[in-house]
Computed example of a mutant assay.
Amino acid sequence: MSTPPELTVERCTQQEASEIFYKWSTQEHWNPSTKGEDVRDVYFKADPQGFFQSKVNGEVVSIVSGVKYNDDQGWIGFYITSPKNRGRGYGIATFRKAMEHIGLGRASIGLDGVMAQVENYKKSGFTEIAWQNERRNGPITELVEQQERALAEGIAKNEIKGLVNLSDPLVDLNQLSTIEQRFSGLKRPEFVKDWAKFHNHPEKRRFGAAVLSTDGSKDEKSGQPIVLGYACVRPAETSYRVGPLYAATPEAAKQLLVKLAYEVVHAEKQQSYNIPLKFDVDVPNSNQEAVKLFDGLGWKDTFPSQRMWKGVVPPHDVNGVFAITTLEVA
């Protein structure tokens, strides 16, 4: 299929990407992070050449990102065509441009596909399914003040050993990318560091937490405590979005989840941020302990999607993934 002659495909500037990708994903009810700050400050930095927009007569008709993470991995995200221009070949032409940028010979190219598009992605070579995500949604005030009140009170008093803010000097950021590669298969150390730093902004309601070993075990390279799991939360349009939530044990996962909820609820009591006090958590349903955790809280699946790969599925242990980082860029 050739590119429609009236269509031009351009790379986005950082400002264009943060504005357009945020606006369009909001219109699609994807619940993106507020004001496109994640696109501007983290996603775009991961690959400044990987954000594309297509235009007809100067009007943007389609967008997509194609991010290179390393020599053998890339990721497709934000694949949207404006509703009035669908069915004209504009979207697939933009998609192909992003794929060309990543490199068709790359060993692994992934995406999180909405269910309505899964068959179309398979036709484009994304035939390997790693897992299905379930977007679990639930109230966090209830979590902190009722369901896990004892744990939240312990967190408030700093009584939970090993549970710290992600900005704590004891947290070795290099271990975070090792954890992500182990559990999800993604190799993107600089992205992980930027993501952790992005969530060290309590004044913007962005929080990060980690669980450290308390048995004295240390990382061989850094000499810092072993990180058993970490998690982040950020405000979005209609809720707060949690991601990632990586943990070696269900107990650590629960501690991280309640820690993030406590921080948001506590901050809201000081000054409202005018965002519903709910969490959205994209959970691989093949992690039975994760499903059990959120079933136990009564949080329902509101938006399923599939993690799909073209080429090799990177080795991973999904049992440590209690929430993916983000649907937009994995």
Rank of each mutant, 00 (worst) to 15 (best):
S177A: 15
H29N: 14
R40L: 09
A98E: 01
K45F: 11
A290L: 11
D72P: 00
A196D: 05
I140K: 00
Q147Y: 02
A236H: 04
V291A: 07
N85A: 10
P169N: 03
K157P: 06
E180V: 13
T326Q: 06
Q27K: 11
V313K: 12
Q271W: 01
Y22R: 06
S108Y: 02
Q14P: 03
L7A: 10
G296I: 04
A252V: 09
P139T: 12
S25K: 06
L186G: 01
I129H: 13
D280S: 10
D112P: 06
N158Q: 13
V171Q: 04
V42L: 06
D215C: 11
Q288R: 11
Q132S: 13
Y273P: 05
H266G: 03
R88V: 01
V264A: 04
H266V: 09
K45G: 01
K310N: 13
L173Q: 14
Q147S: 14
A261G: 11
T325L: 07
V60R: 02
Q270S: 13
L228C: 10
A247K: 00
F183E: 00
D295W: 00
L7V: 11
G103L: 10
R11A: 12
G138E: 02
G223V: 04
K259I: 05
I129P: 05
Q15I: 14
P169I: 08
V164Y: 01
R40V: 00
L293V: 10
I20P: 02
H266L: 11
E19A: 10
G110I: 06
I160A: 04
R188D: 01
V39A: 08
R206E: 07
N120D: 07
W195L: 14
G162D: 08
R135N: 04
T26L: 14
P139I: 09
M99P: 04
R40F: 12
T326I: 05
